[in-house]
Measured scan of single mutants.
Amino acid sequence: RNRTTFSTFQLEELEKVFQKTHYPDVYAREQLALRTDLTEARVQVWFQNRRAKWRK
């Protein structure tokens, strides 16, 4: 699988949710996936990576 390149819009949407919660539930991830045209799995992995970055 190739690396996912996120658009500016997608990143803004993802970051917006991350500001509210670092652990969105499955429903929130599904909604975000639909809004950003990503799969729920991509959204989940983005949050994992974003939390790792945030901890540093």
Rank of each mutant, 00 (worst) to 15 (best):
N2Q: 12
R3D: 12
R3C: 15
R3V: 05
T4D: 12
T5Q: 05
T5H: 10
T5V: 12
F6R: 05
F6G: 01
F6E: 14
S7E: 11
S7V: 04
S7N: 10
T8R: 09
T8H: 12
F9I: 05
F9K: 13
F9H: 08
F9E: 12
F9P: 06
L11R: 08
L11T: 14
L11D: 07
L11S: 09
E12G: 08
E13S: 05
E13I: 04
E13T: 05
L14M: 08
L14H: 00
E15C: 01
K16Y: 05
K16A: 10
V17C: 14
V17F: 04
V17K: 02
F18P: 00
F18H: 02
Q19F: 09
Q19T: 15
Q19P: 05
K20Q: 08
K20Y: 06
K20D: 06
T21Q: 09
T21K: 03
T21F: 04
H22Q: 14
H22G: 03
H22T: 04
Y23C: 04
Y23W: 10
Y23R: 06
P24Y: 02
P24V: 02
P24I: 09
P24R: 01
D25W: 00
D25R: 02
V26N: 10
V26K: 10
V26C: 11
V26E: 10
Y27E: 14
Y27H: 10
Y27W: 11
Y27C: 11
A28W: 04
A28V: 15
R29W: 01
E30N: 14
E30V: 11
E30Q: 08
Q31A: 14
Q31N: 05
Q31H: 03
L32F: 08
L32S: 08
A33D: 00
A33W: 01
L34D: 11
L34C: 13
L34S: 11
R35V: 14
R35W: 06
R35H: 12
T36M: 05
T36R: 01
E40I: 06
E40Y: 04
E40F: 09
A41K: 08
R42T: 14
V43N: 00
V43E: 00
Q44Y: 10
Q44E: 13
Q44P: 02
V45R: 06
V45P: 00
V45W: 09
V45N: 12
V45Q: 14
W46G: 02
W46E: 00
F47R: 00
Q48M: 08
Q48K: 11
Q48R: 13
N49Y: 03
R50S: 11
R50N: 04
R50E: 14
R51I: 09
R51D: 05
R51V: 04
R51Y: 02
A52N: 09
K53N: 15
K53P: 06
K53Y: 11
W54M: 12
W54Q: 14
R55E: 14
R55C: 08
